[in-house]
């Protein structure tokens, strides 16, 4: 490599680091502010390091109804993940292992449904749950979430099922396994990473969703975490940004860890058709 290209590479490298720092600044700022005491949050000069910080902001969050909403969110998310995985897994199996009439149109429908915006449907979904007495209920919200994540989960799992060679299953059958045994001994273990990835995807969607829960969970005691964060922000906007940032940290950090684990699979799932090349 010539010196000229090397200097150029260095310059670009430095630019990349600067951009990276700018991009992660909001995340850093959230953490930083959550540790600052009251007087330093409202100082004329912002504190860029949480030296001699305090955890009192987290205490103020725990004193609000944070844990009640955490429970609601956990229930909704749990139901969504389990049901979506189960349904999508069965459907993906059917789509990739059996040829039947309507198979192609089902796949197409899955793709199109995935694109339907919640904003175009929430009015009638609200009316629907109202009619079934399921407004403000964990079951009602989960039902909508399952329907929202199942299409993409099917799409993702189908890719994984396709990736398991049929020959392997057939070899097991020849060796005297029953169809069920072949499935549990051969196919299922190979699919485990796919199930984990799809499960985390469903988890993230349900945990972070805002619009539908805003529409469905109208009572304060039934808020999910994103709704809680919004109302907590509204209530403390004037007085307590440290508390608000502590709330954001608690909502964000666990989810971010999950996200980092599966990010790669989700990107490739979304553009799979194109990237494969």
């Amino acid at each position: 490599m010539s010196t000229r290209t090397r200097t150029r590479q260095r310059a670009f490298g430095a630019l990349a680091v600067v951009i990276a720092l700018i991009w992660m600044f909001p995340v850093y700022w959230m953490l930083n502010s959550s540790f600052l005491p009251y007087n330093r949050i409202r100082a004329a000069e912002p504190s860029f390091l949480p030296l001699n910080g305090t955890l009192s902001a987290y205490g103020r969050v725990f004193d609000s109804n944070f844990f009640d909403t955490l429970r609601i969110s956990a229930m909704v998310t749990g139901i969504t993940v389990v049901a979506a995985l189960l349904f999508a897994f069965l459907a993906a199996l059917a789509l990739s292992r059996f040829r039947f009439k309507g198979r192609r149109s089902f796949i197409l429908a899955v793709l199109i449904i995935q694109m339907i915006p919640a904003e175009g449907l929430f009015i009638s979904q609200f009316k629907l749950l109202e009619g079934w007495q399921l407004l403000n209920s964990v079951i009602g919200l989960s039902l909508l979430y399952i329907a929202a994540v199942v299409p993409f989960t099917i799409w993702m799992l189908r890719g994984f099922v396709n990736g398991v060679p049929r020959d392997l299953e057939e070899a097991a059958l020849v060796d005297g396994c029953s169809r069920l045994q072949a499935f549990f001994r051969i196919t299922f273990p190979l699919l485990a990473p796919g199930l984990v990835a799809s499960g985390v995807y469903a988890f993230l969607q349900a945990w972070n969703e805002f619009t539908l829960s805003l529409v469905i969970m109208t009572r304060p005691e039934n808020m999910t975490l994103p709704l809680w964060l919004r109302s907590f922000t509204e209530a403390n906007r004037v007085s307590d940004w440290a508390g608000i940032m502590a709330g954001s940290v608690l909502v964000a950090v666990p989810v971010m860890i999950f996200f980092l684990l599966v990010q790669h699979r989700m990107t490739s799932g979304l553009v799979s058709g194109a990237v494969k090349g």
Binding site: N208, L229, V249, M256, F259, Q263
Partner: peptide, 14 residues
């Protein structure tokens, strides 16, 4: 990745 992983509501709040 950090920016991408942030839940929407948390980023909006920040």
């Amino acid at each position: 990745l950090l920016a991408w992983a942030m839940p929407h509501l948390a980023s909006l709040t920040v």
